[in-house]
Write a protein that binds this DNA or RNA. Sequence first.
RNA 1: GCCCCCGUAGCUCAGCCGGUCAGAGCAGCGGCCUUUUAAGCCGACGGUCGAGAGUUCGAAUCUCUCCGGGGGCACCA
Length: 489
Amino acid sequence: MTVVEGERPSDLLAARRAKLDRLRAAGIDPFPHDFPGVVPIAEATAGWDHLQPGEETERPYRVAGRLAARRGQGKMAFLDLVDLSGRLQLQARVDVLGSEPMERLLELDLGDIVGVDGTIFRTRRGELTLRVDDYAVLAKSLRPPPDKHHGLTDVETRFRRRELDLLANVEARELFVMRARIVTALRRYLDDHGFIEVETPVLQPLYGGALARPFVTHHNALNRDLYLRIATELYLKRCVVGGLERVYELGKDFRNEGVSFKHNPEFTMVEWYEAYADYGAVMDRVEVAVGQVAEACGYDGEVDLSPPWRRVTLREAIRERCGVDVMAHRDRESLAEAIVGAGLEGYDTQERSWPALVDDLLSREVEPHITDPVFIVDYPKELSPFAKDHRSEPGLVERFEAFCSGMEIANGFTELNDPDEQRRRFEAQQRLALAGDEEAQPYDEVFVEALEQGMPPTGGVGLGIDRLVMLMTGRRSIREVVLFPAMRD
RNA sequence: GCCCCCGUAGCUCAGCCGGUCAGAGCAGCGGCCUUUUAAGCCGACGGUCGAGAGUUCGAAUCUCUCCGGGGGCACCA
């Protein structure tokens, strides 16, 4: 018998290897190429509610899945077969199968992938069951599965070996099915409303569209450094300039930051841009889209996601939370005084600039206390290099952020389309970068030239998919909703 | 980067106030059984107690270092 190189010889592994060898010795291929004609277990079990305990049928089904449990041995055994759609009890009888196939069936290991032809009936104890007429090993499992009762709970194993989590825990499978439904529903909403999906570069000569540190990589043939995108914003707006009036892209962004319950260095974001819309129209669309997605995927959590969502200015949100009126204190010194005067502690009132202090107030005093979805609107210009000046409030821009359950889930604005103003914003960012701000925007002349070509009035937004999935599945950690989250090495 | 907590059999856990403390259930192995279903009954196996160093007559247990994980802080469109 063979033992995998580098593995400590183990009785558990050796026993499975021995069975594998026995199958081959008996002329049975433990890894056949296909098993056509399988129906989902849920299909085989549907429509039999009327079947009485002890009642038989002649209805055959062909199912396949992973062997999850076995009860009883000898001349009759019950086994549980699991596929993505559900679980089905199998009954194996020696008088149906014959002694040799029965013996081989009893030698199957939990975790083996098995295909079954059988007849549906209800046992005396009342469980819908498939009587095994014939079966085939479809893939021998050479490693023991996680505990089938307790499942797999060790967090490290669950994240590093997600396949084990998936095969051991139904909730894990259901969650990622749900995630797929959410993404599909969102795409459907955008497709149905005239948006076209595009793909823009992940590897970018210049990064932009967000305030974040990028990952840097190197292209050998071109002999140049490239950045992994931190946002799709600038490319998408170039698409709008080109006449793709409604565009979206749903994909991964990468930010060179720490990990936390709401941060993963690579994460999924959808951004969409709509010509002739402003930030108010974009907010309308966000709340409607999220509401429809929630309904489409069967969301039934505690938070009410249906529109409309509350809208409150950043100024009001901060004031109602801690009494500080940031618009009444428009310079650093004055705001610092107000923060101290309000008895708030832990603020770096010496080093932080006015917009930075406003941002601090938002993330510390407001964001953690938000439960129901809310749009916070009208941000300081300095924090938003791509948002258009507010039509009536000097020093502010037409920007919103959507928050829910203590997390930011979306950020959008009336897009800045005045190329000269955009140039000035880049220059301001350059000054910040020179002053040591590692998250400042690099100057993107190609983008400014695109704006010079003429971009219609446009509203745009970025919506965090991972966080949306957290929201809709009630998970507290982004790592629960990302299949293979970043782990310390 | 800082602070706190965790790491015992394939899986889920107990033991941890230093001295039969190497334990249980499940899985696996052997035997029995034609209606089981938290995993039928009986039996025998199975661990370098995350790694290393130290204290001690004696360490899973106390101390330190390292590794891995979790939580919090800092940071974080």
